[in-house]
């Protein structure tokens, strides 16, 4: 099972953190920091796998991919295939790319909740849910459509009432 998904920028700021096994906030930050510590000191042309047992405990592996200013990190246990996880990061990033049209760090930061929507369509409670980015996109678009549709209805009276109260 996948234990955690993190997106960290090259300065060590978390951009997305999802833990599929509960960790208290302080522990989460500590884990993010130690992962960043390991990743930032790694050379360019080395493998995408890092020994994570010292950080996450026994039977954990860590796979990461470095895109522009972001590290995409998956932490998982021995029941998952490392190489497949690497492909899953690829699926995740490709989907984001389709979603934001050439995704960059700013998209990730500002559309925090959309990131989660995408992630939740790919990984569900630590298990792989969907691996086709087309399918994921379909679901994500439908959710966005539902949101904006109901927002349009609910926002009109709200803005009107705010305007009236002035």
């Amino acid at each position: 099972m996948i234990r955690s998904v993190m997106v960290i920028n090259t300065q060590g700021k978390p951009r997305l953190a999802k833990f599929y096994e509960f960790q208290p906030v302080e522990k989460q930050q500590e884990l993010i920091r130690s992962v960043y510590g390991v990743l930032s000191s790694r050379a360019e042309n080395v493998s995408n796998f890092v020994d994570a047992e010292s950080i996450f405990g026994a039977d954990t592996r860590l796979v990461y991919k470095h895109f522009a200013t972001l590290y995409f990190v998956f932490v998982f246990d021995s029941s998952e295939n490392e190489l497949a996880m690497l492909d899953l990061i690829q699926v995740f990033v490709e989907t984001l790319d389709k979603c934001f049209k050439n995704v960059c760090e700013l998209d990730v930061v500002l559309n925090y909740s959309k990131m989660h929507t995408v992630l939740d369509e790919i990984i569900f409670g630590g298990q792989v849910l969907e691996t086709s980015s087309t399918e994921v996109m379909k679901a994500v678009e439908e959710i966005s459509r539902l949101e904006s549709a109901s927002n349009a209805i609910s926002l009109v009276p709200k803005s009107v009432s705010a305007w009236q109260s002035r």
């Binding site: 978390p14 906030v25 930050q29 925090y112 109901s150 927002n151």
Partner: peptide, 29 residues
């Protein structure tokens, strides 16, 4: 977002439950 940066946010927990109980899709989401 604040939670992700590592600040305490426990005071918002009840808000989640209220949002879940509301009818609209965006609130529930």
């Amino acid at each position: 977002f604040i939670h992700m940066l590592g600040y305490p946010t426990h005071f918002g927990q009840m808000e989640c439950l209220k949002l879940i109980a509301s009818a609209g899709f965006p609130e529930k989401r």
